[in-house]
Design a protein around this nucleic acid. Structure first.
Lengths: 226, 226
DNA sequence: AACCGACGAATTGTCGACAATTTAAATGGA
DNA sequence: TCCATTTAAATTGTCGACAATTCGTCGGTT
């Protein structure tokens, strides 16, 4: 999984690189959720000083992938059902508002870009050459574009810089690369339409429904497993 | 200004203490907004090692009071009008949802507690022994209680742990300890009523209106200054 | 047998020094 | 005088070592 993110900046310092490596490892579960992090051990494993590793840990803490207690240590966050539901509720609030702001602030160029993206998506998954691809990458692409179109730096940083790392982690660990593709496509389409029409109120409502539907879909899947 | 925060934990390590001191200094403008931070200078000033100061800087970065660029250094965020409006839009989204969740998840004890708080507020500002007190502390008290009542850890962390430090900073630097107290009181009252009635939809709408009104009020004040 | 306290090992927090990068000044040429 | 290049100073990033705290073990007491 490429793990691209619009707010991502090229890693320049070694702490940046360790941060990205650990981020991948945590999202994909190679460093297990809920596990304790041993600074000396990981420092040796990644071949860096403990200071550098701590720097990386600090950034992981910033995007809520690890939690640290004073004099106790760091733990990877654990993926609970309640945490997942809370995350989706938060997304509903933030992305709903981002969608409303997008309807107000989007540029014409961005509208063209989003419609082109939708066009691509309408063909790719129909060919069935990878439903999972659509769901994973295409869905994130769509949401990222909407958020960026809000032109609200506060919202962009919160959602892309913090929340979405957790979203990826949950998707990965709970194995949610599943369908809902066609319905999601229609919903994406309607949302873009509302944004293009500059109808902020409708755009927000549709986005909130879209995320809520996704939450309920996931909820039922989890209940099925249990 | 006491700067109390429900998510605040007692500072145990020295980095904690430096963090709190700098937090106060930034919020109150003693370390000017937008200014560059010299690690060696501040380390000497606070009588700590540069590592410890960097640890404090990392936490300030977590609550969006400081921004750091690799190999360049740290700057205090600067207070712009656009930033303020973006912050209020974000609050509208998050606290609106928190208010809806509060209506769903609040306990009876918490309802009693909130009503008692409202009772206190109804008397204190009427006595005019400190309108600024009401606006500063009382208003924050109210919002904190609503957020905590949501019982959504994700929302609580985001709003109390990050957003509200910025809110305090803007209030302080733009000198917003001003009235709007009586209208705000009525709005608080209606919101609590909706929560007590377990009417999530209404509670969210009222909270969003409340914050939007506050934003517009501030907007007009700023325009007056210019 | 269960509980409490002391001791030792391991982990985290803090420090100062060195390396790498950026910023500023200084030098030289057009 | 202005601009480009080089050089020096300052700042940030990284490292290893020491101090402080926590965790686990052991022994003793009730």
């Amino acid at each position: 999984m490429p793990l691209n993110n619009p707010t991502r900046t090229a890693p320049v310092t070694t702490a940046d690189k360790i941060f990205e490596q650990m981020q991948h490892a945590i999202v994909e579960g190679k460093i297990p959720a809920g596990s304790k992090i041993s600074e000396p051990e990981l420092a040796k494993q990644y071949q860096v000083s403990r200071s550098t590793l701590r720097e990386a840990l600090n950034r992981l803490e910033k995007c809520h992938l690890v939690e640290r207690k004073a004099n106790i240590g760091s733990r990877v966050v654990d993926c609970t059902i309640q945490g997942l539901l809370e995350l989706y509720i938060t997304r509903e609030a933030l992305e709903g508002m981002a969608c409303r702001q997008a309807a107000l602030n989007i540029t014409n160029d961005e509208i063209v870009d989003m419609q082109a993206m939708l066009q691509r998506h309408s063909q790719s998954p129909a060919l069935q050459d990878g439903v999972s691809y659509y769901q994973e990458q295409g869905d994130l692409d769509f949401h990222y574009k909407v958020i960026l179109a809000s032109h609200n730096q506060q919202l962009i940083n919160l959602i892309c810089g913090q929340l979405y790392h957790l979203v990826r982690m949950y998707r990965c660990q709970f194995g949610m690369n599943s369908p809902r593709a066609t319905r999601a496509f229609d919903e994406h389409s309607h949302i873009i339409q509302a944004i293009a029409d500059r109808d902020g109120e409708l755009a927000e409502i549709l986005m909130r429904r879209h995320i809520a539907a996704s939450r309920i879909n996931i909820e039922s899947k989890i209940l099925k497993i249990k």
